[in-house]
Design a protein around this nucleic acid. Structure first.
Length: 241
DNA sequence: AACGGGGAGGCAGGCTGTAG
DNA sequence: CTACAGCCTGCCTCCCCGTT
């Protein structure tokens, strides 16, 4: 719902745009004849989330009121909305602003996946991962992340795999789902554990076994494909359609 | 330096077949 | 019809390479 409010009642702090407003952009908006689209304001604080340039343009035009769309939510979510709005339209944020914003979102929403934060802040997922690594400074990460689909995915399922492999050894006739429930992992993960055991492999994946202290990956061929490992460890069939 | 693209491997939850 | 089983789908992180 759009309402008209007094410009004097609004505050403008905590913008993701660290360099402030662009005077040329404000001027361009001010001289345009079109009515300014509504700005977005955090209801509980009166802080402008999206529309600083429009607000300044309205002031130059001599307006005392401006049309506003209110946002209900906490300050952290308001900042996320501010970043998202400034990335998707209007005057784009600088790369530095985007990275700064991503760091703040990592701090306020640590459970969000790199891709979710990347899509909000307008930088690459790899850059988000790098910012997260630096921010954590060696501290252990949270145990799981929430993705675009809203699903929670663990970062390290080793403990569940260990439990599953033990159960499979002791009770080979248990179903995947029975084991999955006890080990608190998905049936698909249990199946992978079982398949690895049937092939005589370690039930823990290579990445998980090393827990971040990776042995070097095999070098890629000129075509970009991974060379197979010298020992029998065939790549898992990736189902894609 | 930053990013896009692509491959590999891993995961949760939905889907579908089947037995009782 | 219901419960259970395994398979499928789509998303994840990590990594590397080429491009901008």
């Amino acid at each position: 719902m759009v309402v008209e409010v007094d410009i004097a009642s609004l505050s403008t702090g905590d913008s993701p745009r660290t360099s402030g407003v662009d005077p040329e952009h404000v001027e361009a908006l001010a001289v345009a004849q079109d009515p300014l689209p509504p700005i977005t304001v955090h209801r509980s604080t009166g802080r402008v989330i999206d529309g600083l340039h429009r607000l300044r343009a309205a002031e130059i035009r001599g307006q005392r009121k401006i049309t506003v769309q209110y946002f209900d939510g906490d300050a952290a979510d308001a900042f996320v909305l501010a970043v998202e709005s400034n990335v998707t339209h209007g005057l784009p944020l600088t790369t530095a602003d985007r990275k700064h914003a991503a760091a703040r979102i990592i701090a306020s929403h640590p459970q969000w996946s790199d891709r979710v934060i990347a899509s909000v802040s307008g930088i690459a997922p790899g850059t988000v991962a790098e910012i997260r690594r630096r921010a954590q400074g060696g501290r252990p990460a949270e145990e799981s992340r929430i993705g675009h689909d809203g699903r929670v995915r663990p970062l390290n399922g080793n403990e569940g795999r260990r439990v599953a492999s033990q159960l499979i050894s002791e009770n080979p006739h248990l179903s995947l789902r029975q084991i999955a429930r006890v080990a608190a992992i998905s049936p698909e993960t249990v199946r992978d554990v079982r398949n690895r055991m049937r092939r005589g492999e370690d039930p823990l994946p290579r990445r998980g076994r090393q827990a971040g202290h990776d042995e070097p990956r095999p070098p890629r061929t000129a075509a970009g494909a991974l060379r197979p490992y010298p020992t029998a460890n065939p790549p898992r069939t990736v189902r894609r359609s």
